[in-house]
Design a protein around this nucleic acid. Structure first.
Lengths: 198, 198
DNA sequence: AGCGTTATGGACGAACCAGTCAAGAACTGA
DNA sequence: TCAGTTCTTGACTGGTTCGTCCATAACGCT
């Protein structure tokens, strides 16, 4: 009945994410995104509404994918829970160190730039952070059931601490900390988690 | 010999810092700063060169003042080192929670927005972070000498961990974590630091 | 007081950018 | 094939913003 779209909406969102991620929100022009996707500006506005709405779409998708990825890394049976938690913490350090362009995490970058003045971004970021905390809490509780972490510790508080360490690794990476430092932080953080008295 | 300036350079820098801090670099207009300081744009450009140079001045001063403030909080005799360290960690959590506008720290905000594309900002941020790490290391070493932290732990690595936690508290605060969560993180972080076997 | 030097402030120029619009293209169902 | 609908393209608009320029003001030295 009508002319079909020539572009894949998901691909456009992915490309827009790269642009916003590299440049930040304010410094990215709609024309940059149009150029990178090959679309005309009219199509972009027709499909997504405007710059802010496009960013919200990108940011939502990014937050969702981060939570999904962490969920896949952390969820599983209790026996391997500590190994998965440990692997995740090291993985964040390694990924941050590997990010030589220091783009950091779009969640952190977008929050830093926009949360203060954009309620939607603030809410989405808060939800994502809380989801990550909950995943960590589940993982830590699993570790406790398996005897890898002291049972008398509060898993919620340990989860918040680990989350702070992970976000801190992120922040330090953006400020130029080297791989060894970041890996050491990961190792030390895991080492100081309370072990059960044996 | 020549007409003297009517404004105080330091006051202008302070005002400019507030503007950049609230809005970020890209979203702050030179005219905003001119309006907030009462200066004309000509004076602003004449005194500071341009937007980027002005931000660099502001960012440098901010980094310096942060390091100074932390230094004052942490330095002192060994006997009170642990109390000072503890107070500092709680103070960061409290300050972050008190920042209801979620402006966060200009060091983190500026780094997130600009470090990737502005070498000067990246270097200054790196230097500031390293200075903070060194201050924490000294404080932790003092705690060890006083028997408040296990002597066999590596003070440099503990300092990096504590720094990551502090930057993480900052990041979580910007994402909307509540005061209780932030205070709990501070408490838990201090609790998991290794104590000497008594 | 006159002069040279530097500060002031606001008008101006040029570039930039978000968003609109209109003319035409692509497709489907009848 | 034709009509109706949606998509595409890129030129255009209106507002914004960095940075400049210039006439004027303020000051110290001679």
């Amino acid at each position: 009945m009508a002319r079909p779209r020539k572009f894949d909406e998901q691909q456009v969102l992915d490309t827009a994410r790269e642009q916003f991620w590299s440049g930040g929100y304010a410094a990215t022009r709609m024309e940059d995104i149009a150029g990178a996707t090959g679309l005309g500006k009219g199509s972009l506005y027709g499909a997504f509404g405007g710059k802010q709405e496009l960013f919200h779409r990108v940011f939502d998708a990014y937050c969702g994918s981060v939570v999904d990825a962490v969920s896949r890394q952390l969820c599983g049976n209790d026996a391997d829970a500590y190994a998965r938690l440990s692997a995740h913490v090291y993985a964040v350090a390694a990924a941050t160190a590997a990010d030589t362009a220091h783009r950091g995490c779009l969640l952190a970058k977008g929050t830093a730039e926009l949360a203060e003045h954009d309620e939607t971004v603030a809410q989405r970021a808060h939800a994502a952070i809380e989801a990550l905390r909950a995943l960590l809490e589940d993982a830590i509780a699993a570790c406790q059931r398996n005897g890898d972490i002291a049972a008398d510790a509060d898993p919620g508080k340990l989860a918040a601490l680990v989350l702070a360490v992970l976000r801190g690794i992120e922040a330090l990476g953006k400020a130029g900390a080297d791989e060894e430092t970041l890996t050491d932080i990961a190792r030390t953080a895991l080492a100081v988690l309370p072990r059960p008295a044996h």
